[in-house]
Structures are given as structure tokens and as C-alpha cells.
Nucleic acid binder design. Structure first.
Length: 273
DNA sequence: CGCATTCCCTGGGTGC
DNA sequence: TGCACCCAGGGAATGC
């Protein structure tokens, strides 16, 4: 399940592989995946385009080309493969045939991922358009301040875990890292956002940065979800403190697993109030 | 506006 | 071995 660090890792490897590559043609095998544009137009608009840069905004990948920008969200199991021209794999949904004879494939077992295509020139312009326009601040951005969180949290009666997952408030945290941030901040994931103290918000700010930075430096987290294969092998799973853990690394209390807003949530009942 | 709920998908796991 | 059913989960759509 790619969250910010995993998408960052994918971005970095794709950069090495496809910048400068030119698209000869595109095959789409699952039309519903293509958003904001007719599928035939999507295919047509990409022919002859060259990948000039790849960026990440929140959990979105941005493929910058000469005349278009393609935005891809991997959701649960989306992956990109660069491989020789060969038969379509079972879960390959979009195949970009490159002019050097190789192919870039978007593969997604559960078909949850989506791809947008925009005829826009600048990132600034694109950030004003959905889906990017809905995103809140990333933990690494300058605007991620105490003041910002205070404003966003003060009126919310939702559980802190749910609010951490809300991309319109903080963009980049997913289920794994939201659990880690709650643990590192010593917060019960069920506590209401508006009930947090200033010190709690400060802890959220610092632990979000720490956990994401560390995860990025280790290439993300690979949790071997039963349905996926060929995952990018991150090493952060060895550093997880609560998510999927049985015992608290601090006090050795048994880690509880509950559901917060339908999301599996791990926490230490002693260290997290 | 905030928030809860439903839906999209697949295939591994479980129970009979 | 086969089959029905459950479940995970990010974000959009829907409804209150």
C-alpha cells in the first residue's frame, strides 16, 4: 500500500528509467481507470510525448511531458514496470509502448488506481485543479506549522487517526504511517482532534517528519500483502513501532488492534493514553 | 460546511 | 476439491 515514502521511491526509480523516453502508442485494457478524459483521447494525446520529468505530490505521481501531464494514483496495489515488449500480464491495465521497443506498464491487481491526463503546461496551474487542488499540506512543506494544524483540528470531532488520514489536511500519510505518528506522539488514535493540546500538535508535526524521512531513506515499507507481488522492496517495515506489531517496544504491553473509521489500527493502550 | 456511509475491486483465507 | 462468503483499504460520490 503505497504512501508518501513508497510513492517517492517509485518516483525515483521511474526517473532513472523513463526520462527522455518517447511514447509510440498506448493500450488501455480497463477504461474506468482513466479519469477526466475520454479513453481514445487519452491514447491519442500521449502519442509522440516524451517524459521530461517525474514528480510526486502527496501520494500522486506526476508524469511531466511536452504537452501534457499525467497524474497517477497507485491506491492499494498499483505498480509500474518497465519491461520488454511481451504479452499483456493479467493485471496490466495500461501499456505505454515506447519508441525504443520497451514498454512501461501500469499493473494493479485490484484496479483501484486511477490515471488522469491534463493538457496543462505548469504544475502551479495543475495544483488548482482536482485532484491536486484538494490536497492539504505535506509534512515537509513550510506551511506545515502549529498554526496550520491548530486551525484544521480545532473544529473536528473526528478521531485523530481519521484526521491524519484525511489528505485534504495532511497529504501523504496512509494507514501505516498514521499509526506510527500516533504512537510516536503518545496519542490514542481515537482521541478527538479538537481535544488535542498544543504539545500534542507539536509532537504530530515532528513525528510525521521523522517517520516519513526515515521511511524515504529506507526506500519505504514493504508489507507483504497476500495479493501483491513484485513490490518495491523497502526496508522500513523493520523499523515499524506499532503497525502490525504484537508488543509495545517501549513498555512491552500487548498492542491492541481496533478499527477507527473502518481502518485497521494498532496502538499501545498504555503508552497511548 | 462537516461527517458518516457506500462503493469500487481482487484473491487469499475460512468454513462447510 | 469445490463453493459461498468475508475482508482490506484510498478516495470519490452520495446523503444527511
Amino acid at each position: 500500500m503505497p504512501e508518501l515514502p513508497e510513492v517517492e521511491t517509485v518516483k525515483n526509480s521511474l526517473r532513472q528509467l523513463i526520462i527522455g523516453q518517447k511514447i509510440a502508442s498506448v493500450d488501455v485494457y480497463y477504461d474506468k481507470m482513466i479519469k477526466d478524459i475520454d479513453v481514445n483521447e487519452f491514447k491519442k494525446d500521449l502519442v509522440g510525448e516524451v517524459f521530461t520529468d517525474i514528480l510526486r505530490v502527496g501520494k500522486y505521481l506526476l508524469f511531466i511531458m511536452d504537452h501534457v501531464i499525467m497524474i497517477s494514483h497507485l491506491r492499494m496495489e498499483g505498480k509500474y514496470f518497465l519491461k520488454a515488449k511481451e504479452e499483456k500480464g493479467k493485471h496490466d491495465h495500461v501499456i505505454f509502448n515506447l519508441t525504443d521497443g520497451t514498454t512501461l506498464r501500469y499493473n494493479d491487481t485490484r484496479k483501484f488506481g486511477v490515471i488522469h491526463l491534463f493538457k496543462m503546461s505548469t504544475i502551479e496551474e495543475l495544483k488548482k485543479t482536482a485532484p491536486l487542488s484538494k490536497l492539504g499540506i505535506e509534512p515537509f512543506e513550510e506551511g506545515f506549522t502549529l498554526e496550520y494544524l491548530k486551525n484544521k483540528f480545532k473544529k473536528s470531532s473526528r478521531p485523530i487517526k481519521t484526521v491524519l488520514l484525511d489528505q485534504s489536511i495532511i497529504s501523504g500519510l496512509g494507514n501505516i504511517y498514521a499509526d506510527e505518528v500516533c504512537f510516536m506522539s503518545g496519542l490514542n488514535p481515537l482521541e478527538k482532534a479538537k481535544d488535542l493540546e498544543i504539545e500534542d500538535l507539536e509532537k504530530i508535526i515532528s513525528s510525521s517528519k521523522i517517520v516519513l524521512e526515515k521511511a524515504i531513506s529506507l526506500g519505504g515499507t514493504t508489507i507483504r500483502s497476500f495479493t501483491s507481488s513484485h513490490e518495491i522492496n523497502g526496508r522500513f517495515q523493520n523499523e515499524l513501532l506499532v503497525h502490525t506489531k504484537k508488543e509495545c517496544p517501549k513498555c512491552h504491553t500487548k498492542i491492541e488492534k481496533i478499527f477507527v473509521g473502518k481502518r485497521g489500527t494498532y496502538y499501545c493502550p498504555l503508552c497511548q493514553r
